[in-house]
Amino acid sequence: MLELTKVSKLFNPGTPNEKIALMDANLKLNPGDFVTVIGSNGAGKSTLMNIISGVLKPDVGEVRIAGEAIHHHPEHARSRWIGRVFQDPMAGTAPRMTIEENLTMAYKRGQRRGFGWGATAKRRAIFREQLQRLGIGLENRMHAKVGLLSGGERQALSLLMSTFTKPQILLLDEHTAALDPARAELITRLTDEIVRDMKLTTLMVTHNMEQAIRLGNRLIMMDKGRIILDIPQEKKADLTVAQLLGEFERISGHQLSDDRIVLG
């Protein structure tokens, strides 16, 4: 479904601040794969996400979705295939517009936008039904401006907006990291439900080791711009956090360091 071949990216090439963001990364996701990604600070997790979504272009290498090479497409053109939830709960929604209007924009993901009326009655019925799935009462506040919602509510809405049109690839970039534990748990639960129900091919970066093990069917580990370990479902099932950290140290030769890391 998603295939990265020999993808490399340098930041500030040829200057004293040159940094390898991604080096010769190869990754293949099969349809329905739910892959969690862990790694230390600066391991290239976010760069990986940005290269897939088109925020960054690779210096070398190819990105393919369903066989089609997309690494030359700009970000907005890739939205046809990709749904994305950002770490910042404020990033995925437009605060001065209503819940209904935000969902309308998400409904048209990757399609041409013309002079057709936005929030039609038919679409609103779909939105109401979808909002009910979240179970946090947003279906009764469809005319509320999104800026009035809490961070957790906004992130739940972002998650819904990126998924209800069934993208071929779902990218989750530490999307629970900025929330308090209770809200993070809610979003994690919703993510698991939605991805399972809709069988979305998903790549999720997380700093929460326990979450990385519990969710999904595959786990990849990154360090210094490289993918250093790819753990398949069979081995992942009875992995512990301690084993995972031990494995990381064994391969990379240093401890997993991330100032925000949560062991679970």
Partner: peptide, 19 residues
């Protein structure tokens, strides 16, 4: 709506496919 979102949260509307 895409025009309004451009001024409100350009990154968001780009991720939903507006140029």
């Amino acid at each position: 709506l895409a025009l309004r979102a451009t001024g409100d949260n350009a990154r968001m509307i780009r991720s939903f496919g507006a140029n």
